[in-house]
Every structure is written in structure tokens, then in C-alpha cells.
Simulated assay, not measured.
Amino acid sequence: MRKRLWEVVEMENNDIRNEHCCGKTIELHPALFKDNSMSKGGVFKEKGQVLREHSRSICRPPSINCRIQSFGRICKKFDERRTRWVNEMAFGGILHLVSDMHVPRQLSYWIMTRIDPLNRILIAPDGHEFPLSKNQVRWILGTPSGNKSVPSSKMMNNEVREKVHKVILQYGSSWKTKSSRGCGSVYISVGIPVTSKMMDRLEGNFGEDEEEEFKTLFLILLLHMVMCPTQSPRLATDLIPAVSCVKNCKEYDWSDLVLKKLMASVSSFARRFYATGYAGGCGGCAIFAVIFYHDRLNGPSLQWDVFPRIKVWTKHAISMAAKADRTRYGDYGRLGVRF
């Protein structure tokens, strides 16, 4: 057996693996997102029956793994010391997630069908287009937008590799993976499973000398549960190097990372949805997409001067807006958008 630290074959980002599991896919091109006659998914969008077709085809709620409710519950237990450490990391805006907040699965699924990941725009049912940018991610989540790119598995220097090795030794595990090329090779893949034990530890007590441990755990869970979630129980492989930034998080552009990962997840989702008319679900930061859409609905402005937007879009506010926006066919878009 051969060892691979960054096992691409395992595809930690299960959004890509799901394409092969779910069968038929379609090649993406810009016209696909505007001309509903070009695909099966487009036909259901035109009829306003996206959610009806999903329910008929899969018979279970869409898989949306942006676990803001669980993460909010953890953050609610932070004392002054842990809150101070989070603010030092420049992620203080995330602390506005409250424990009773959740991402509506059907609404999130429907919004993903309105996103064109190639041009990074959200297309409303009436055709109006709204650009998606990293500045919008910051405005909604309060994430840092520093001058440095967050390290990935494709751009690691020796210093980052040493830090990653240390993190994997402490939190990682290994498993066997068969080659997808059918050659019979077996590899040992290494990754970081996100467990209830890690969540319990983050909720526990930390001494002043345990700052690095707290920040490392916080960043792992933040990436996996809120900012860049996938369908996998493990932190996405190409996100592991990002954990090396815990001591100087504010210098890095996390807002750009969130947007890139969301667009990658929506691309995978779209290849399945437009080919068959449905998809099992979608990874990425769904709460960003939900609030971005709701901020553009027709209706009274919801405290536009408040930053970040997750501070005002509570569970109740999202639920009321979604209920008012629902059409008689089960999709959304009834209220229209302002522009």
C-alpha cells in the first residue's frame, strides 16, 4: 500500500464524488442558467416546481450541511476568554449566530438552483441578476478579508507543511482507499474527522495557556460546519492547510475562500440538477446564500445599517420572509426582488 497525505481519489469534497454516485451530469455553460428550455432542471424552474420534483424523485429533504444551529449552540457557551480569542482571530461576527438559528433546507436548495456559479450571480425568477462577491460574504457573515490568500493543499510552503503535519498528528486519522482507476491499488488516506468529542472540547474550559488549542479547534469546526461545509464527516482535505493560520487569521481572505467553495459546490450541484431535474443536496455556506437572497426581497428593509447581516436575520425573520415568499406551487419567488 502507498501513503498519500492529500488523497484526491478519496475526494473529501463529497460534492464531486456525489456527481458519480448520482449518475447523469451535464456540462455547464452560461446559457444553461438563463434558458430553461435547455435542460430538465430548467423545465422545472420554468414551471415553479423545483421542490415538488425533488420531493417526488428523492422522497427526503434536501441535504444541506451548513450546521449553524449546532455551531451557534457551541458559541453561546463561550466565556469572556474564548470570546476574546475569537475576536482576536477577526471572526467575532460569527458569534452572532444563535443556537436556535437554522438553515431552511428547501429554501436553500431552491436558492442554489438560482445561482450561476460560472458568472457568480444569483438570478431572480424575474430575470434580474445580482453579483455575488467576497465583499457580500463579509457584509453578511462578518468574515475577515485580509490581503493574503488562505493556504490550500496546492500552495503550501515548508512552514505551512510543518504546521499541517502537527495538526494532523493531533486531530487526524487514517483510512484505506481503493484507487478509482480500477488498478487494484490501495492507499492510506489521512484527514481530520469532525467529531462530537471535538465539539464537546470546544464547549469546555480553556486555560490561558491553551489558546492555540482553542483557536485550532474553533477554526476546524467553523470551516466544516459553517463556512465551507461538504457532505463528508471530515474536514475537506484542501482546507486542512487553512488551519495553519490560527495565529494570524485576520491577515487572510476568508471571505474569498467562502465564496470560492460555495461556487465549487454549486457547480457540482448544477451539473446534477440540470441533467436530471433534481439533486440530493448541495455543500457550501448556505446561510450566506439565504441571507443574500432575503436581503433583496421586496418588502420592508431589515435594518440595513446593521453589520454583519446575520445579526438581524434571525430564525424568526428568515421563517417569516420565506413563508411570505412561497408560491402556490411550492417554490419561492412570490414577493419579487428590489433592484
Rank of each mutant, 00 (worst) to 15 (best):
E162A: 14
C228Y: 13
R272T: 15
T216V: 03
D200V: 06
I287W: 10
L221S: 06
T237H: 00
E162D: 11
G172R: 00
S232V: 10
C249M: 05
S268Q: 08
V186Y: 02
E213D: 07
I291K: 07
S180E: 13
M263Q: 04
C245W: 02
V226R: 04
M198Y: 12
I240V: 14
Q231N: 15
L219W: 03
E251K: 01
L259F: 00
L222G: 05
C282H: 06
N248R: 15
I291V: 15
S180W: 12
S173Y: 03
T195W: 09
V266R: 06
D209W: 08
M227I: 13
G277P: 02
C228P: 10
T195Y: 09
K197T: 13
E211D: 08
P233H: 10
F273M: 14
K215S: 00
G172F: 00
E251F: 02
M225S: 12
R201W: 11
A236H: 08
T237K: 02
C285I: 11
S255V: 02
C183L: 10
G184K: 14
V258P: 02
G207V: 10
A270K: 04
L235V: 08
V246P: 02
R181T: 12
F214A: 11
C228H: 06
D256Q: 12
V258W: 05
R234G: 11
S268E: 08
V164K: 00
L262F: 11
W175A: 09
F288L: 08
S265N: 13
S267Q: 09
L219G: 04
S185E: 10
G172H: 02
Q231G: 14
L239E: 07
C228N: 05
A270W: 06
M227C: 15
F218W: 05
A264Y: 10
V243G: 01
A286N: 10
V194Q: 12
K215Y: 04
Q170L: 04
D238A: 14
V243R: 01
M198G: 05
L217I: 01
S232F: 01
G207C: 13
F273C: 11
S268N: 07
G204D: 15
V164Y: 00
T276H: 01
L223S: 01
R181P: 00
K178A: 07
A279G: 03
V246G: 03
L217N: 03
G184E: 08
T195H: 10
K178F: 04
A275W: 07
M225Y: 10
T230K: 05
K178L: 12
E162L: 13
L221H: 03
K247V: 08
E251L: 01
